[in-house]
């Protein structure tokens, strides 16, 4: 039920945006992420964007995972 998918914003209107979800073009509501811009990634749940993905934090997380993976040898 709480499934959310990341999607890239291709076009945006006042209340809606066309996003790319795994290669499919879908129209979603953007009333809850009013700052969203074309090329941003958003989290989509049940037809509404709930968050704009923060790329800076996403990058920090990726670096952290890679470091953690080599934290110590088994």
């Amino acid at each position: 039920m709480c499934v959310g998918v990341p999607a890239k914003v291709l076009e945006r209107d006042e209340y809606t945006a066309v996003v790319d979800v795994l290669g499919s073009k879908v129209t979603v509501g953007v009333i809850m992420v009013s700052d969203v811009k074309v090329n941003d990634y958003v989290l989509v749940h049940a037809g509404q964007a709930l968050a704009i993905v923060d790329e800076e934090f996403a990058l920090v997380s990726m670096e952290e995972w890679r470091k953690l993976a080599d934290a110590r040898d088994s």
């Binding site: 968050a51 934090f57 920090v60």
Partner: peptide, 15 residues
């Protein structure tokens, strides 16, 4: 918060 790319301290204020 281990999902910082999506989750903020205050949540989504509009929601």
């Amino acid at each position: 918060n281990d999902y910082r790319s999506m989750v903020t301290d205050q949540g989504n204020p509009v929601a």
